[in-house]
């Protein structure tokens, strides 16, 4: 399948995932929020853990059953990986959301905060990749 078509099909699947979570559970499919809350003790914990298990299952199914090529993993040193992971976690929690929560669901709700957050993290993401060419 053509990579643009795969991107569109994948995006539709992600959109449908967010749709059913809001329609049935009344919750936003923001992965950083779901992952964070799955560690907190609450009555919500159960579906959040199952969402994470489903996320792994879906990814595994795509590669094992649909023959999607397994991507190459990043080859950066551990320090770089840890710093990036820290910034992603710290930033997502402080900014109340990540690519899915703000970019897909927040903009989906036409939230002004999410438009702003998405514009900012896309811009600094572009800047980060640009600057990393010089390192």
């Amino acid at each position: 399948m053509n990579e643009y078509l795969m991107a569109v099909v994948g995006g539709i699947l992600i959109g449908l995932s967010a749709l059913i979570l809001l329609l049935f559970n009344g919750r936003i499919a923001g992965i950083s929020g779901i992952a964070w809350r799955s560690w907190q003790s609450s009555v919500e914990q159960k579906w959040q853990w199952l969402f994470i298990i489903g996320l792994l299952l879906g990814t595994w199914l795509a590669h094992s059953q649909l023959n999607i090529t397994v991507p190459q993993l990043p080859d950066n040193n551990v320090g770089w990986i840890v710093l990036a992971g820290f910034l992603v976690g710290f930033g997502a929690k402080l900014g109340s959301g990540c690519t899915s929560g703000h970019g897909i669901c927040g903009i989906g709700r036409l939230s002004k905060r999410s438009f702003i957050a998405t514009s900012i993290f896309m811009s600094t993401g572009i800047l980060s990749v640009f600057l990393s060419h010089f390192i």
């Binding site: 099909v9 994948g10 559970n25 994470i52 990814t59």
Partner: peptide
Amino acid sequence: IVGLSSGVLFGLGLAVSG
């Protein structure tokens, strides 16, 4: 059940889309 299904769709979407 909804959480699990939503997660599966999300995972499929992430892997398929690249």
